[in-house]
């Protein structure tokens, strides 16, 4: 417990150093927008995770998104993944929090799949730059694969927990 605390504080310090370094030496990275977007998203994300852990009851998550929530639970997970903005690597801490609250394994992989491929704000970009034909074809082709990935991963990858 103590040593994990020390590691955490060290990690926070190192993170601040890395971000400062990126902001102060803009020449190295192709552009700094990525590091800046992490900087901007971090506070909102971790406050959200804290609020979720403190306010949302386990029962609520289990009934609406748990093993027995059926199609409706999967639909909730999918839509939630589409709506929350932010890069994929910030979805994992949120997914971890959801999993500890009792969301089903299938739904959590579906959530991550939707998050990565069908983010509403990104789809507007795709529609604008790649056109409706590309967008519709890609979405129609990707949805079944996201479901298959969710099925396989939820069956195979959780034996350690």
């Amino acid at each position: 417990m103590k040593s994990s605390r020390v590691k955490g504080v060290f990690g926070v310090a190192a993170l601040i150093a890395v971000i400062l370094g990126c902001v102060m030496f803009p020449g190295y990275a192709a552009d700094n927008s990525v590091v800046l977007s992490i900087l901007l998203y971090l506070p909102g994300f971790f406050v959200l995770i804290g609020l979720f852990e403190a306010w949302v009851s386990r029962d609520f998550v289990v009934t609406h998104m748990g093993e027995k929530s059926g199609l409706k639970g999967s639909a909730y997970s999918f839509v939630m993944g589409c709506l929350i903005p932010g890069p994929l690597y910030l979805a994992f801490p949120l997914a971890g929090a959801l999993l500890r609250k009792g969301i089903s394994r299938f739904n959590i992989v579906l959530f991550i799949g939707a998050w990565s491929s069908f983010k509403v704000v990104e789809e507007i970009f795709e529609l604008h730059f790649l056109g409706p034909r590309f967008l519709v074809l890609r979405v129609l082709l990707t949805v079944p694969f996201v479901i298959v990935v969710a099925f396989i991963v939820s069956k195979v990858c959780f034996d350690d927990k």
Partner: peptide, 16 residues
């Protein structure tokens, strides 16, 4: 909730 936020951030920070 804020305390939980800080804790989950600390947990993931080294990996971040």
């Amino acid at each position: 909730a804020l305390r939980l936020s800080v804790r989950s951030f600390e947990r993931i920070a080294p990996v971040f």
